[in-house]
Design a protein around this nucleic acid. Structure first.
Length: 431
RNA sequence: GUGAUCGUAGCUCAGUCGGUUAGAGCGCCAGGUUGUGGUCCUGGAGGCCGAGGGUUCGAAUCCCUCCGGUCACCCCA
């Protein structure tokens, strides 16, 4: 059996069993469920509520929210047009959540809205390990709070999730970006500082100098780092309000014993960030080392049309990278339990009886498996074994006549006779 | 988008100085036991050798293009 079709580049199928795609392990659907369940559990413990938004949005929302100059908008969007409207498969979920918050006036629910999401995103990037064209993000948006405790709590939630999976080998870096005015002044100063060195810079850095000088700061080239060692720092330009806010965030992080490293060179790729920025990295993931990142985005709401500012903070995290980190930590996800009962039948009468009984047992709440191919008893027993069934129940002419089934405990091999009307209780009692 | 590298049964991989019908292990199906799984034995199915083109008497093997994976750049979750 085969087909010439295949999944689109940069996407992957999630199958009942884990498998290897090239060098990357793709987790099973059960593992995805287990991870999502743990994420939801941690979110709920932190008093967050789930929000789900469509996977496509007007292009304009994303362009305004994320920023025209970003790589995401300028070259990585899956966009299409229909009947004169431009749509885009969402490349991230913060702007859509803010759109939804504003559209549905969620501030009217009162208090701070603490939301989380989990779902697919799309970016037309060159795929590699930990980076896909359809990937999955989970994240948090704490909307309507400018208090530094909101920043620290958001980071704490993020850390709690990785802890829940036993992912300990991580580095949290934080910084403050200040407000746009300060950043603009800094960008000018940085440009002035770097211009004399222009000929020494790499091609990409020269391009960034013109387009987005902030990005030069996280160059990986040693000699460029050298040049930057005496450059002005963003911190020097950040206005006192933001600096005080930053100090409070750090105090609250200390309060929670969350370890972090201050990184004045940390800048984030999306335009909407203000003040607090942070990133969680794992040294175990190769080139795509960012597990999660986030920050404060006090200006996003107005950017997409709100008449009022809505101070907010959040983070986004990659599911695929979480799986990589879990694997690197050597941790296993729980296996799903097998069937409670596998019904094996012999002969037409038994098949009919089993078919009816299987459905009755399922309505009683049992996980029941059976054969749909009319195979030999031996094959059915093999199937029961493969499905990891707790009990195999054998029904043939003899059992129908006696009104009692042969019930075999697969792990021990012990087999007993149980009257038909006692089987459900027998299995339930021993679950 | 750029560079490097890889692509042979469902999976992991042998096989390339070009030469009969392309192999192994595991998995799958069946039989050994016409009413009993996990171990064992036996047999079977399953491959346009990633796709297309070229060189050649002859291509899994050599060349080109494309597709896909991986690694890195870039960027980021």
């Amino acid at each position: 059996m085969s087909t010439s079709f295949q999944n689109i580049k940069g996407t992957f199928d999630i199958l009942p069993d884990a498998y290897s795609d090239g060098g990357t392990r793709i987790a099973s659907s059960a593992e995805w469920h287990a991870v999502e369940e743990t994420i939801r559990d941690v979110m709920h413990r932190h008093n967050l509520e789930e929000i789900r938004t469509p996977i496509f949005e007007p292009t304009e929302l994303v362009a305004r929210g994320v920023g025209q100059m970003t790589d995401i908008v300028s070259k990585e969007m899956f966009a299409f047009e229909r009947s004169g409207t431009n749509y885009v498969l969402r490349p991230e979920i913060t702007a859509p959540v803010m759109r939804s918050f504003l559209q549905h006036h969620l501030e009217q629910r009162g208090g701070v809205q603490k939301l989380f999401y989990i779902g697919p995103c799309f970016r037309a990037e060159q795929p590699q390990k930990g980076r896909y064209r359809q990937f999955h993000q989970f994240g948090v948006e704490v909307i309507g709070a400018d208090d530094a405790r909101a920043d620290a709590e958001t980071i704490a939630i993020m850390m709690a999730i990785y802890r829940a999976f036993g992912v300990e080998n991580t580095a949290l870096r934080i910084n403050t970006l200040g407000m746009p005015d300060a950043r603009a002044k800094f960008v000018n100063a940085l440009r002035e500082y770097l211009e004399p060195y222009e000929d020494d810079l790499s091609e990409t850095s020269r391009r960034r100098l013109a387009k987005n000088p902030l990005r030069i700061l996280d160059t990986k080239l040693d000699y460029e780092q050298e040049i930057l060692s005496d450059a002005p720092t963003l911190t020097d330009f950040v206005e006192s309000d933001s600096r005080e806010h930053y100090e409070r965030v750090k105090t609250y992080l200390d309060e929670l014993s969350i370890e972090y490293e201050e990184d004045p060179l940390l800048v984030r790729g999306l335009d909407y960030y203000t003040r607090t920025a942070f990133e969680l990295e794992s040294p175990d993931l190769g080139a795509q080392s960012a597990l999660a990142g986030g920050g404060r985005y006090d200006l996003l709401a107005e950017e997409i049309g709100s008449s009022q500012p809505v101070p907010s903070i959040g983070f986004a995290a990659g599911m695929e990278r979480l799986f990589l980190a879990i694997a690197a930590a050597g941790n296993d996800l729980p296996e799903p339990p097998g069937a409670d009962v596998f019904f094996a039948s012999l002969g037409d009468d038994a098949e009919r009886w089993v078919f009816r009984t299987v459905h009755r047992f399922r309505s009683e709440g049992l996980h029941v498996a059976h054969d749909l191919k009319g195979r030999s008893l031996k094959s059915q027993m093999k199937e029961a074994n493969r499905q990891d069934a707790t009990y195999a129940i054998i029904i043939g002419g003899n059992e129908l006549e006696a009104g009692a089934a042969q019930v075999k405990h697969m792990a021990s091999g012990e087999q007993v006779e149980v009257p038909f009307d006692g089987i459900v209780d027998f299995v339930m009692d021993r679950k």
